[in-house]
Amino acid sequence: MSGAGFLLDLHRCVGCGACVLACRIENGRVETAAWRRVLPLNLRRRPSGPTYFLSVACHHCDEPACLTGCPSGAYEKRADGIVVHHEDLCLGCRYCEMTCPFSAPQYDEAKGVMSKCHLCAHRVDAGRLPACVAACPTEALQFLTAAAVPPDGAGDRVPGFADPAGCGPALRFLPPAGARRSVLFRSLEEALKR
């Protein structure tokens, strides 16, 4: 992880969706698809797996597939790692929709262009937190600046989240604790330790 991104504490996140709504308000995503979404893992609470929520948007990857696959140069990776999309350069070809393994870019039917989370670059540039992070009621979703060192125990993989294309998403996880870690999950972890 070489630039700015998110840290998600899977123990503190209760999947409430406040981040999704805060993003909608901040970025004028009123009647269009939301840039951020909450993916519940194990809604049936099967004891064979952990129960937690992945609040995800764009991961501002080290190697952004959206950018490399864009024929019109509409994507830019800023020096601080934030991947921004320039609507005025976008052809609406939707290649990025296919190349991004995380489904971050959203097609805007009305405008005929793509759009995606820009990590609230306008807020970050003004020294403020991204809207989703500022709104998180349990402080589960956190902002990592380009210079930040993720806290001890933070990892880049959890069940339910993969990086199949090797994009290097700038997203780190603090693992679930308490009962969220199912029996099997715990025993796997213990098995791995041994």
């Binding site: 409430c16 969706g17 406040a18 999704v20 709504l21 805060a22 308000i25 901040e26 809207a131 500022a134 709104a135 998180c136 009621p137």
Partner: peptide
């Protein structure tokens, strides 16, 4: 924008999805 009031220490400067 709708933000939590940091002057209310119980709600700690946050609202919830309904408030938003």
């Amino acid at each position: 924008s709708i933000d939590g009031d940091p002057e209310n220490p119980a709600t700690g400067g946050h609202v919830c999805l309904k408030g938003l």
